[in-house]
Design a protein around this nucleic acid. Sequence first.
DNA 1: GTAGATGCAAACTTTTTGCTGGCCC
DNA 2: GGGCCAGCAAAAAGTTTGCATCTAC
Lengths: 170, 170
Amino acid sequence: MPRPGRGQGMGRGGGFRDPQQGMLGGRLRGHGHRLTGPRRVILSVLESARDYLSAEEVYMAVYADNPGVGIATVYRTLQMLAEIGIAERVDTGDGKARYKLGPVEDQRRRVVLVCTNCSRSTPITTGTDDTEAVIAQLERMTAEQHGFRTNRTVVQLYGLCEQCEKQYGG
Amino acid sequence: MPRPGRGQGMGRGGGFRDPQQGMLGGRLRGHGHRLTGPRRVILSVLESARDYLSAEEVYMAVYADNPGVGIATVYRTLQMLAEIGIAERVDTGDGKARYKLGPVEDQRRRVVLVCTNCSRSTPITTGTDDTEAVIAQLERMTAEQHGFRTNRTVVQLYGLCEQCEKQYGG
DNA sequence: GTAGATGCAAACTTTTTGCTGGCCC
DNA sequence: GGGCCAGCAAAAAGTTTGCATCTAC
């Protein structure tokens, strides 16, 4: 995967007017971290993302407007955000970790659709779904039958996505 | 992670008397693959494993008796075994894929309990369970809501196993 | 002012791939 | 004997780390 070359430095501490950034900045400082320029940009990218983003995707989006930010900073920031619970880290099995803003407790249960043809993995947002109830039932059953206390559940559905299904003429 | 240095070559096609190997060899040939020496050893390692093994763990076990087998062969074999359904691949989120022998067609739906304390992963045999019905429902729902045709489902429950639960005094 | 963050480059880890020679069927 | 498969080594791909500089607080 190609990476853009090095930029010529960004204007550090660019002005953001996003009210949420103040909130997030507070949470960062509460954990002894600082709200720096690069971090503002990364947070901004995550905020405007609907799906989970890989580190590279975040880096690309950041790079578009701020070529000076290094990929190491992206990795370090994502790691930090996940550590203090501002972002959720997810491993979809393709070797890339993916991140998404959001309280971890709301994403305790996760369903991922993995297409065995095109390799695309699509996280499904549970929580508003009935899937939530189904998974809860599964957790209850394993607790009863195996004495296992589940904290987090990941369901991977392997199969064909809508596009590839058509292509195969299923 | 240190890796053992290169060995001085193995006796290819070592004699095995494991009756299961004949069966597995047949399944390999049925898919147009061959049962070679290194593959016998790798299969033997997987057979005697109770848990999921990472590629490196398989390589280490293979290396103990057959230092001549390269790690590339381990990767290629594991990949092939997973492809034809003789082994199951699982991504536990630590960046390493793990493999375990097991007929996928008999276990199209799999539930694995992963203890976040002791790191042990325990496969649960579905099929006679109610879990089967619950997962089937999940698959039905994603088909309806996302047009996704599921062929195989892996559920990973992360939490505390019975032993660690006691230890923590939950 | 100082602890922490940054950019850069290089190291590290896991997995894949190209190549030449060798072995299974 | 032919095509799959082996070992080796190097590359790929993702992530982490060391270091000098810089900056948010």
